[in-house]
Amino acid sequence: MPRTIFLSGPAGSGKTSILRLSHDEKLAIWGRTAAIDTDQLFLMVDPHWDLPYDDARTALVLRQCVSLAESFFGADYENVLIAGNSIHDAIDLNPVIPDLLRLGRVFHLSLDPTEEAVLRRTSADPDRSPAHLINDLHNLRAKRSPWSAPVDNSSLSPLQTLQQIARVVEAGEGELREPLPDQAAGERSTN
């Protein structure tokens, strides 16, 4: 049965590195696996990240993810990874979960590396503020819901992280079978 895997995590957690693994690497670990980077979809309408957070834009991006996932499954892909910073709350995910469940199984995982791992991974990028990265890590960790399966990838390469994600999903952890319980009022995701 096809699987959609939402992969959340703070900046510097390794989401993009996992998505950029080669087709052959993904195939060897987990079968035909497509990758959708929500940042790339957001950049289509906000190429400089100038706009403030907007529910309607997030909903548009997630609707596009559903359409892409349906296309990949129609082309015999077994797994679709959807990764991004803004896919960790029920308010944003609930509108698309029923449509994805009609396509197959749905999972939510959160990458949860240590502060040291995030800083190590981003040390060569002068545009990333260490203080901002650590703040993002703590904010997302505090917002992580019990329905999301955590994956500590602090000491794992992107390939090893994908292997761990496959094990977690195969074990049924983080599976979403229906829309999620609402979070506390006022909690909002940010790009």
Rank of each mutant, 00 (worst) to 15 (best):
S13F: 10
V61H: 01
R120L: 08
S155Y: 13
T114H: 08
P95T: 12
S13C: 11
I82T: 04
D55E: 13
H132F: 13
E25P: 02
L176C: 12
W49V: 15
R3D: 07
S71T: 13
I97S: 00
L81Y: 10
A75E: 11
L137G: 04
R20W: 09
S86G: 06
S129N: 14
G12I: 09
A28D: 06
L68H: 09
E115F: 06
L68Y: 10
V96W: 03
N94T: 06
V61E: 03
Q183G: 08
L162T: 04
V168Y: 01
G186E: 07
R105C: 04
G104V: 09
Q164D: 09
A35Y: 09
F42R: 14
I5A: 03
T33Y: 11
L93V: 06
T16R: 04
T4D: 02
A149Y: 01
P130C: 06
T122P: 05
D99R: 12
T38N: 05
W30M: 05
L140T: 02
A185C: 09
G174L: 03
L93S: 00
H132P: 01
A185P: 11
W30T: 01
I91C: 08
D55C: 10
R20Y: 13
L103C: 03
L68K: 05
E25D: 11
C65A: 10
N94V: 04
A34T: 13
V168N: 02
I97W: 03
P2D: 05
A83H: 03
P126M: 08
I29T: 10
H132Y: 14
A11F: 00
C65Q: 00
Q164L: 12
G14P: 02
D55S: 13
E175V: 10
A166Y: 08
W147D: 00
R63L: 08
E178N: 09
H138Y: 12
V168D: 01
S110D: 02
A185N: 11
R32A: 13
A75P: 03
K143T: 00
L119P: 04
W147C: 02
P146A: 12
Q164A: 14
T16Y: 04
A28R: 14
G9C: 12
E116P: 01
R57C: 01
A75Q: 15
T33S: 13
A90D: 01
R20H: 15
H23S: 10
K15Q: 11
L41P: 02
L159Q: 10
W30D: 01
L81W: 09
P95N: 09
E187M: 06
N191D: 13
E116Q: 15
